[in-house]
Amino acid sequence: MLESSQARLESFTVFCRDAEPRLRHALVAAYGPDVGKEAAAEAIAYGWENWDRVRAMDNPIGYLYRVGRTTGTRWLRRPTRLPEPPRSSDPPWIEPALPGALNRLSRNQRIAVMLVKGYGLGYREVADLMGAGVSTVQKHVDRALGKLRKELEVDGA
């Protein structure tokens, strides 16, 4: 039993090495830093508790993402607020209007564009995480970029 428990922990650790950043990034994009981190912690804890069942699934990270989303939705009773970066430098090193524009995207659009364009994940990875098709993720990203360009008055909008 000791060996199997160690093996269980090792397999979960290996899984988390890859899954934790993606879950955290997606849930922070969905719910902001505070709730997103907590929702990711909830999803990881749930995954550990149910690891024998979760790891047998076709898409364990997608399942835990749904766990985190459900948890985040329950906790969050306000619109998502991504924080504004500090404005100490001149010129600002991050476009100040970007967080507000991201906040006004739909949740799926915000998650998709932040994961693909911000965190550099592939469309397939994001599709697995969100439990959606690659083409759906592409549409989310395209629409999000279109809205962001328009709102931020980027050339080409």
Partner: peptide, 25 residues
């Protein structure tokens, strides 16, 4: 306005990563 949106998104997610530490097991 010349704004590299992809670059801004990368910078902003880097900023978020500084705010949010990884979840421990």
């Amino acid at each position: 306005m010349v704004l590299d949106l992809d670059r801004e998104l990368r910078r902003y997610t880097e900023y978020l990563d500084e705010l949010v530490e990884p979840v421990s097991l």
